[in-house]
Amino acid sequence: MRVQLNARNRAYQFEAEPGARMLYSGLAAGINLPYECGSGTCGTCKARLVEGEVDDRWPGATGRKYLKQPGEFLMCQCVPVGDCSVEVAGFVYNMDPGACIPEFRAGTIRNPRPLTRDVMSFSVELESPADFDAGQFVAMQVPGVPGYRGYSMVNFERSATSLEFVIKKKPGGGASEWLFGAGADGKAVELFGPLGAATFYPNLGKNILCIAGGSGIAGMMSILSRARQERYFDQFNGHVFFGVRTFRDGFYLAELAELAGEFPDRVRVTIALSDEPVPGEARTAYPSLAFEHGLVHEIAGKAMEGKYQNVRAYLAGPPPAVDASIRMLLLQAKLPTDHIRYDKFS
């Protein structure tokens, strides 16, 4: 099936695989279609159907609230039924040379294990090695749940044969309940990726500021992992702020403590506890980490005062926490918008 996509600047044609979401077919063809979450929440991949027919595979997607005009649909949720012609209101270009072109991948769930009372980690073993950039995510489809969900890679390596993820348990969240369930280990899943523009490259030449809430730390771990592998912190600073509710809700603290311990003058990691004063055991257990009581964006705002020279910020976590961090960085810190990177999931 051919999709003809008219953008503001030019037209593209690509082949849509039967049953595949239009967004994924276009991205797999190396066309940098507009998207952020790739999984039905943000509305960024909105397009208008000019000719032909599409089948909406997840009419319950929350991103549909951004559809306003007749004929509009989310490319990440709709599958072309035969040839069609669509229009997007923005400028569209081909992907940069060197970009990791996303594709469909088959994988197997491995080693799901709890990290805290409601966060777990798991790996997906890939059938063939994949490249991705630090900070990227994949869209994953699990059996019996409509639509894909976005999960950021925790690890970073080239030609990765295993991708590592964290997931927070959400009551009633179909995908998270399935992954938390007993039967997930060894099950086949389908991935599409890598996706996402909140990426880190070692030629950035800036200090990095990571503000993450909960499972949003995943992509930061990948960024920090790449930075460490490339000895980035020999030259630049890393400011990491990780918000969780209580000390017991913290995870990856040992890994973060090791990083902070390795670069005591360059990397500072602060764990913000929103729901409790810092217990004495926290500092004893992780002397190289800082702990504060408060909301992560407020803690970061206070600690970063006067330190915004040459900074690139990465944000991730629950949408309200990301929004609060954006407001803080724009209004209080006056950081230019192009120095702030995040992928919108709401």
Binding site: Q4, N6, A7, R8, N9, R10, A11, Q13, A89
Partner: peptide
């Protein structure tokens, strides 16, 4: 002949 964008 192919579409080459639009102005709005």
């Amino acid at each position: 002949v192919s579409p080459a964008g639009f102005m709005l």
